[in-house]
Design a protein around this nucleic acid. Structure first.
Lengths: 238, 238, 238, 238
DNA sequence: TATGAATGAGGTTTCATTCAT
DNA sequence: TATGAATGAAACCTCATTCAT
């Protein structure tokens, strides 16, 4: 549980005005088994242990993305790594929590990528465009994780975890939108709705053109950015 | 299988230039068990039977949407209707095929709604806006079915069925976009990509504001339509 | 039950010295359900009813032989005839008893055929050879029933029924063997054992060459007769 | 699958001119489930595991022979050994494959016995007689396995497996028959047909006298050998 | 740390049989 | 006579999790 919290701690970094999603949500996500408590009392892993853990995460990610969470058994995961079943429960309290961990790490990573791409830009519209582009690129490079997001959003069990991450992204965009509105660059419309719309465009177009059709991310990124700028009301150069 | 085909027949109504999705996809979706064949080769249901079947579909839809497909067992379904387990398999060849049937019926219904709302409009941009609004309204009125779409899209097993329906919607929009481009109303950009973007906006904004936050569909419909028109390049009046 | 008894009544015709298998065996085979009792109180079938019954028997025989008794459901049977499930239980008290009835009718028919072919012959060795040939021909003409025998012999439930029929055949052969021994035509060895051996040859060779390899029954009949005559000790012409 | 192949490997030992049954047949028999692959790709069993597995096989064999394959559930099997249901699927991929494994092991064992009894004999007729006797003895000592053969031969699902084993025995006998024919010891008749006839005699007489009537195997073995030698045309000493 | 073994509830599906109409 | 509907026990199999070693 503590581990999980740590995992998503990065999400809040430098986040101003972030909504208070609170840890209650997360706490609901994580069942408190004996193992969990053992885990949370600060177990240190040997280097070899860290590697095993990473192996398991890597393979589980691939399997979850390929066959789906429900169709992928713990047996599948450990078999792929070539270890016994007990090992899994040494490193993770449950299949469910492993999934949450992967999910949150992915969300953190994706956001970091966005932040990095935006860092040098001052103009709010530029930041939005760059952020959108970054998310397309990231999705292209992390097919598996992208699929995990998609699935997790539809499963009652993980819906909360998804919302936490999604809201973080949303509030980033909202800040830029507010700046743009304040600067008179775009009409004054509900920035949260706009942010969700942007996310929607980015998600579905990437899904279809990058993942299904295997097109080049550059083109998709351009198209998505264009569409979104138009959508939020930037007058087109024609 | 025959029944399933009939179920989605409406999707193609009056569709000119629709891509050839072919029935192969569908055929793969629907396993040809003995039961299926029995079903398709003319089983007549009595009025009482029709009612039972409808009950089961209704309750299953609710459960699938609430607990998720994988977390909802056949036992749950029949228990809710108050019948024995065998009854389920009297009316449906499997849990999987019931889900596909619900899915396809929903897609057909949703498209019918769009067509109806569009029928009186001549202007392609008006048709797009009206279609988008219709989909928001429909989603608002059919929370359960909307959730089913979301889930089905993420599950390998149903991905094909979803794509069939989605592509039908997409090609509707594409036709209107082509008309708008031909008429010089919007810039000449890849209409399929634009259509996917429109779908993305509609989906995610509806999900968040209508379903999660419970807002009024009218506002959401307006916002989505505005955003999409801007996105495809309609110059804003303001 | 009465019906079943009637069905095998022919087996005893003109049978001298037949072992007393008794009806106890049969009675154990047939469960006394309410339906059975109704059946046994002498229900008359209309001509149409007789036809339906015959249709069901014919189709069931084919299915039992093709898919096996256990893999063939009552649903399969009635579906093939195009009637409802209730009809089945109108004509037969159970799936099990239908099978027994088919089995016994087949045994009777097979024996009738043997008797017919033997009728004109006086020499005991000729009668044995003709009987063996007749059984090969009959098996060739009734693949389905032949398979039913094979299966029934291995299933605890029907083993008794099979033994009854088999013993009838055996005792026929035994009579001829005794005559041959008495006449000094063959060495004096246990005629029952010899009869079983003859049955074994006939069964397995027919199975392999007529049914599996689809060879001409004439050749097989010759070979089997030769082998059996040699086996019982007829000195070969060389 | 690999395991199964190993199981019947012994059947081919020293077999010259054996028909090419090919592994295709076997491959069809053995479904390639994930479990099977896991099994075949080197799962090591601990001594305790080996013992459990053997217990299960032993008890399953007894049950299959007693109640029949279809009437014996996995629940019955594990209950008899006093373990949970999952244990069964830890050791065997399915009930069906367990049966095939038992079947093939039995066939191998039976053939080994024959080979052993024949080893010291040079005369082809002696070898045939000894082989026949060996099969009677083996059947007497392995009632259960003998019944399994009988059943398996009648079930579509296992028919192929049975034919493989049966053909191996047949081709052994055929070799000896060919030698006898070449040496002018018996008339020149189709050796394969003769071999099937021998098998038939041996099977049915053993079934009746050893298993049903519980007679001494010695007498039966003598009788069967006599009958078969006569059948293939050895002139009787009178 | 790690493993193979074990658990047992729960999943989907089948099917002989009965019953109301 | 006949049908469609219903039953419900029981079949095979899966899997997250625990445990002894």
């Amino acid at each position: 549980m503590v581990a999980s919290r740590r995992a998503i701690a990065g999400l809040g970094d430098g986040l101003i005005g972030a909504p208070a999603f609170g840890w209650q949500l997360l706490d609901r996500l994580v069942k408190k088994s004996a193992t969990v408590r053992a885990m949370s009392t600060g177990r240190r892993l040997t280097p070899r242990g860290e590697e095993r853990r990473a192996q398991l995460i890597a393979h589980a990610t691939r399997l979850f993305a390929t066959k789906g969470y429900h169709s992928c058994s713990v047996a599948d995961i450990v078999e792929g790594v070539g270890v016994g079943k007990g090992v899994f429960y040494w490193y993770f309290p449950s299949k469910e929590e492993l999934f949450v961990e992967i999910l949150m790490a992915a969300q953190t990573d994706m956001r970091r990528r966005q932040q990095r791409e935006i860092a040098d830009l001052d103009d709010p519209l530029d930041r939005i465009a760059a952020g959108v582009r970054a998310s397309v690129y990231w999705s292209a490079e992390h097919r598996d994780l992208f699929h995990l997001f998609e699935f997790a959003a539809t499963d009652e069990t993980f819906a909360d975890a998804v919302r936490i991450g999604r809201n973080t992204i949303i509030s980033d965009v909202v800040r830029h939108l507010n700046a743009a509105i304040a600067g008179g660059r775009i009409p004054d419309r509900d920035p949260e709705k706009l942010a969700h719309a942007i996310l929607g465009v980015s998600t579905l177009v990437t899904l279809e053109y990058v993942h299904h059709q295997g097109g080049p991310p550059e083109d998709v990124a351009d198209m998505v950015a264009d569409f979104c700028l138009g959508g939020i009301g930037v007058s087109q150069p024609s």
